[in-house]
Design a protein around this nucleic acid. Structure first.
Lengths: 239, 239
DNA sequence: TTCACTACGATTGTATACAATACAAAATGT
DNA sequence: ACATTTTGTATTGTATACAATCGTAGTGAA
C-alpha cells in the first residue's frame, strides 16, 4: 500500500501498471470477470493500449495473489478456487480477523466507528437497491476497514487479499441470493466493538464468517459436476 | 546447479525461474544477502546465465513477498524491514501460528511428531556446531512444519512468507548471539502437542514468539538512526 | 571553497521480434 | 468409418534493442 503511494508520488509513468491492475482487480472482485474466464495477453494488451510486457507484469501479480491461475504455455484465467482451498481461505480469515479484533483494545476511536457505520449504511443501501456487486464489495470493505483498526499493516494486507479471493469463492459456490454478509451481523459486531466488548465481538465475528461459509453450496453435487463438465468441454472442443 | 540442466530437458524451460528464485530466496533467508544489498538486473542475469526478462520476473515475485524492495527507476535491493513493520510481522505470526495450533486437534500423528523431533535435533546440532545460518533456517523449518500440521495450505503459505521476512528482521535487528529460537522452547511446544495440550501449547508459542521479538535490539539508537538518515537522504534527494 | 549546472555512465522501463509450445483441424492410411 | 499423423493457427516464453531515468563526476563562476 505504501508502495502504491510512493509510486504515485514519484513516477507518473509507472501508473499504467497500477491502473490496469486496479481495473482487473475490481472486475474480479465485482464478479464481472467470472472464474474460469481466459485472459489472453494480446487481448488485454489491445484493450488497455499497453504492450504485453506490462500486461504480463500485472498478470504475475494477480497470480501471486491467487486471483488468477497461470498455467505454463496455456495462459491465464480467473482462478476457480477448489473446495478445500475455499475452506482454507475462510478458516484463515477467521484466524486473522478474530486475531485483529483481539488486538484492537484501546485503539478504536469515535471517528473509526463513524466510518464503519457509514460503510454499513452504504452496504444496506446497495442491498435494498438490489446491486449485488456493490453489496459484496462494500461488505468486503467493511471487513477490511475493520481489520485496519488493529493498526497492523501486514495483517491488513493479508486480509485484503483473502477477502478478494473470497469474492471468487462466492462467485463459484454462492447461491444467487443472500450470499453477502447480513448487514445486521456487521452492525452487531460494530456495536460490541463500540462497547469495548472484544471477547464477544470475536465470538460474533467467528460466527459471522462461519455463517457466510455455510451459506455457500459446496455440498451440492451441482458445483463439482459443473467443474467436471467445464473440463470436458474444454477437452472435446468448443469454439 | 547440475539440476538446472537436467530439469531443462525434462519439464520445460520454465523451471529456470524457479531455480533462480530458490537460490535468491535461500540466500536471503540464510543471511548471505544482507538487507540493503543492491540487486542489479544485469549482474543477476550474468550470474545465472539468463536474460533480464527472467530476472525481472523473479524480482517481482520476491518484491511481492516482501523480501526485496523495488523502487521505480532505482532497482531492487534486499528489504530492510522498518521497526513497525517488524513488529507487525511478529504480531501476525503470533496470530497465525497460534491459530494454526488451535486447529490441530486430532490431526497430529506419530509420524509428524517424529519429523518435528528430527528437525529439532538438526537444529540443536547446527547450534552446537556454531552454524548460525543453518540454525536459523532449521528453526524456521520447524515453525513451517509445525503449522503445516493444521492441514491448511493457505495458512502455511502465509506463515512461510512471514518466516522468510523474519529472517530479514533478525539480520537487521538481531544481536550476533542467540537470536535464534531456543531449541528447548521448541521441544516444550512439541511435548505439549504430543500430550494434546493445545491450550498450553498456544500459550507457549505466544511466549516463544514474544521472546524472539524481545531478543532483538531495536531499542538501540544505532539501527533507528541509520533508518532515519536513509529516509532523510531519500527525501531531500527527490524534492 | 562552495554552489549550480551540465554531461556522462550506468541502470531500469518498455516494446517488439522471434522461438517454442499447445490446441485444433485436416489429411492420410488402414 | 476410425485412428493416427501432419499441418496450421493462435498464444505464450524469451531475448534483445532502444528509450527514459537516476546518480554522479566534472566544469565553471561567484
Amino acid at each position: 500500500m505504501s508502495k502504491t503511494d510512493t509510486q504515485k508520488e514519484t513516477a507518473g509513468v509507472q501508473e499504467r501498471d497500477e491502473t490496469i491492475y486496479a481495473h482487473l482487480h475490481a472486475a474480479i472482485c465485482d464478479s464481472r470477470l467470472l472464474p474460469g474466464t481466459r485472459l489472453p495477453e494480446d487481448t488485454l494488451a489491445d484493450t488497455f493500449g499497453a504492450s504485453r510486457t506490462i500486461i504480463r507484469k500485472v498478470l504475475q501479480r494477480l497470480a501471486h495473489e491467487g486471483l488468477i491461475d497461470i498455467r505454463p504455455n496455456r495462459g491465464a484465467q480467473i482462478a476457480e478456487p477448489s473446495v478445500p482451498e475455499a475452506r482454507d481461505i475462510f478458516a484463515t480469515r477467521r484466524i486473522l480477523e478474530c486475531g485483529a479484533l483481539a488486538e484492537m483494545s484501546g485503539k478504536v476511536g469515535a471517528q473509526d466507528l463513524i466510518k464503519l457505520r457509514d460503510l454499513i449504511a452504504q452496504e444496506d443501501d446497495a442491498q435494498h437497491k438490489g446491486d449485488r456487486a456493490a453489496a459484496i464489495r462494500l461488505s468486503g470493505d467493511f471487513h477490511i476497514q475493520l481489520v485496519a483498526l488493529a493498526g497492523n499493516n501486514v495483517l491488513s494486507q493479508l486480509v485484503s487479499q483473502l477477502i478478494a479471493r473470497s469474492s471468487l469463492i462466492i462467485a463459484t459456490y454462492g447461491s444467487p441470493i443472500s450470499v453477502t454478509c447480513r448487514h445486521s451481523e456487521h452492525e452487531k459486531i460494530l456495536e460490541l466493538l463500540a462497547a469495548n466488548a472484544f471477547e464477544e465481538a470475536i465470538a460474533w465475528m467467528n460466527e459471522h464468517l462461519t455463517t457466510i461459509e455455510r451459506s455457500l453450496r459446496w455440498d451440492q453435487e451441482n458445483v463439482d459436476l459443473q467443474a467436471v463438465l467445464r473440463e470436458f468441454i474444454d477437452k472435446s472442443g468448443k469454439a
